[in-house]
C-alpha cells in the first residue's frame, strides 16, 4: 500500500509540474494583454503602450517565465496586474467561498447518493427503483444552467422562498442567512447525485450477486450485517472512482452556479481575471484548481485500492 501510494503521489507531482508549464504557455497565448484590455472603449494606443511598459508586459516570454517559475517555487504567486494586490490574497478569498460550497455539497453528496444507490440496488427492478431511476435520468439530462435558471424562476422569483442571488452577501452572511446556500447547493447536487447514486446502485447489484455474498447468505448472516459488512464496501468501489470524476464535474458546475447566483468564488474570480487579462491570477487559480483535481484523483485511487486491493490502478 505504501509503495503504491508513493508511486501515485510522485506521478502526480510530475503531472503538476508539466501542468504549470502548460498553463504558463496557454495564458501567454491569450489574445490581448492587461494593458490593451484596461482601457475598454476609451483606448488610445499611447496609453496602452505606457501601461504595458509599466506592467512589464513588453519583456521577453522566457524572462517572464523564469521570474514566474522562480517565484512559484518559493511559494510566491506574484501580484495582480490590476490593482497590484498580492495574488495569494485574491486566490485565498475566492477559494474560501468555493471550498465552502464544495464542502457543503460533498458532505451531502456522498451519504445521499450512497443511501439512494443502496436502496435502489436492494430493490432492483422494483417500483421504487424504476421511479427513482426515471427521475434521475431526467435530471441528469438537464444542463446545470437550465436547472439553475428554472430553480431561480420558481423558488426565488415566484415563490420567494430563497434569495435569487448572493448580491450584497458573502460567505460571512451564511450564518444569519443560511437560505443563501439552498438553491446553489441543490443545483450542484442534482446532477452529481444522479451520477453517483447510479454507480452505487450498480455496485450494490454486482455485490449482491457475487459468490461470497451468496455464500454468506447461505450461511445465515443476518441481512443488516450482510449489507453493511459485505455488500457496502464492494458496492462503494465504482462510486468512489466516480467520485473523483464528479469532483471535476463539480468544478464545472460551480462555474455556472457562481455566475447565475452572483457568488464571489474562484470561478467568478477566474472569469474576471481572464476578462481583465490578469495573467498572474489566471495562472495561480488554474494551477490550484488543477492541483485540487489531481489530489482528488490520487485520493480516489488510494481509497479504492484500500477498499478492494485487487483493483490495480497503476500499472
Amino acid at each position: 500500500m505504501a509503495r503504491h501510494a508513493l508511486r501515485r503521489v510522485s506521478l502526480a507531482v510530475v503531472q503538476l509540474a508539466a501542468l504549470a508549464i502548460l498553463i504558463f504557455l496557454l495564458t501567454a497565448l491569450l489574445p490581448g494583454d492587461a494593458a490593451e484590455v484596461a482601457f475598454n472603449e476609451q483606448a488610445s494606443l499611447e496609453q496602452v503602450a505606457q501601461l504595458r511598459t509599466q506592467l512589464g508586459l513588453d519583456r521577453p516570454l522566457a524572462d517572464r517565465f523564469a521570474d514566474w517559475a522562480g517565484a512559484l517555487l518559493s511559494g510566491d504567486l506574484g501580484t495582480s496586474l490590476i490593482g497590484g494586490e498580492p495574488v495569494g490574497g485574491i486566490v485565498a478569498r475566492s477559494l474560501a467561498t468555493t471550498a465552502l460550497l464544495a464542502c457543503v455539497t460533498a458532505v451531502l453528496l456522498v451519504p445521499l447518493s450512497l443511501v439512494l444507490g443502496l436502496v435502489m440496488g436492494l430493490r432492483e427492478g422494483g417500483r421504487l427503483d424504476r421511479a427513482l431511476s426515471a427521475v434521475m435520468l431526467a435530471l441528469n439530462s438537464v444542463p446545470d444552467f437550465v436547472l439553475a435558471l428554472v430553480a431561480v424562476a420558481v423558488f426565488a422569483l415566484r415563490l420567494g422562498w430563497f434569495p435569487s442571488t448572493w448580491l450584497d452577501a458573502g460567505a460571512a452572511d451564511l450564518l444569519t442567512r443560511p437560505g443563501l446556500l439552498v438553491l446553489p447547493v441543490a443545483v450542484l447536487l442534482a446532477r452529481t447525485v444522479c451520477l453517483l447514486a447510479r454507480q452505487f446502485r450498480a455496485g450494490t447489484i454486482a455485490a449482491l450477486h457475487a459468490d461470497y455474498v451468496v455464500q454468506a447468505r447461505r450461511l445465515g448472516v443476518p441481512r443488516g450485517r450482510l449489507v453493511l459488512r459485505h455488500v457496502l464496501p464492494n458496492a462503494a468501489v465504482p462510486g468512489v472512482q466516480e467520485l473523483a470524476r464528479t469532483g471535476d464535474q463539480l468544478l464545472g458546475g460551480v462555474l455556472i452556479v457562481e455566475a447565475v447566483f452572483a457568488i464571489p468564488g474562484s470561478a467568478t474570480a477566474l472569469v474576471d481575471a481572464v476578462q481583465g487579462r490578469d495573467v498572474p491570477v489566471v495562472q495561480a487559480l488554474t494551477l490550484l484548481l488543477a492541483a485540487v483535481a489531481l489530489a482528488f484523483n490520487v485520493a480516489a485511487d488510494l481509497v479504492s485500492h484500500r477498499l478492494a486491493p485487487r483493483t490495480e490502478v497503476l500499472r
Binding site: 426565488a156 422569483l157 420567494g160 434569495p163 435569487s164 442571488t165 448580491l167 450584497d168 447566483f261 452572483a262
Partner: peptide, 20 residues
Amino acid sequence: LRILSAETEARGNAVQAGEV
C-alpha cells in the same frame, strides 16, 4: 447606499426578487 456589481442575469433576478 450600496452599489453592487453583477452580470445581466443576476441583475434581472435581483431586482425582480426585491433584493435590490
